[in-house]
Amino acid sequence: MPARDEFLAGARLSFGATLSFLPFGVVCGVAAIQAGMTEAAAVAMPALVFGGSSQVVVNQLLLAKAPLWVVIASGLIVNLRFMIYSAALARHARGAPLKERILFAAFIVDHTYALTEQRWRDKPGNPHLLAFYFGCSVVTWSAWLLFNALGIFAGLAIPPSWQLEFTVPLAFVSLMAPLLRDRGMWAAAVTGGIAGLVLANLPLKLGLIAACAVGVAIAMGVDRWSRGRVGSS
């Protein structure tokens, strides 16, 4: 299959899935305006950061008047998972020119990563995987920007009775659910959530970072305990 066809295949596969981000994108746009950002900065955020979860966290903390370093640190912690994707995708980008690798890095999100890995499993050794990835990326990035813009420029016209903001926690739940496949992941989710609730009133809005650290530490302990049990049985 030529590179052009792979690009189109990526774009086509991505198109259906991106529609599911419509409410999430609109909520992100509305939240940015409610947090006090100018319209231009609110548009620049999805265009340059391109990470819905971190955008929500940043907007929530800005709304809560958290210090800027806490806002930025929390947003970046949410995006740390891209490091895992970056490591996993590096093997597909080996040998690619620097310019292509920079573009490859710029569009790493949950969705482009998952579709590309799926394509690799379906077509091992595919020589045009980068073209497929860029097809996914163009559609996903454009759609994300469009959905955010809808929220920024028209979101406040949505009746409050729809409670569209409730899609934010639901989106986090639905993004997290497929990961809950072992005890460690469950432990991270349960303890992270409880810690988030208990530590919500920490000064400087540090509760989120602290809760994340508590969740990961306990989950690592659960992992170790599970391995010990398997080893001893």
Binding site: S53, V57, I77, L179, V190, G192, I194, A200, V216, A219
Partner: peptide, 20 residues
């Protein structure tokens, strides 16, 4: 690598549960 993967459920849950 494992701890980086655990960040996602811990963080998402820490965001979602207080919002709920």
């Amino acid at each position: 690598e494992r701890s980086l993967m655990l960040v996602l459920p811990a963080m998402f849950s820490a965001i979602a549960i207080p919002m709920l």
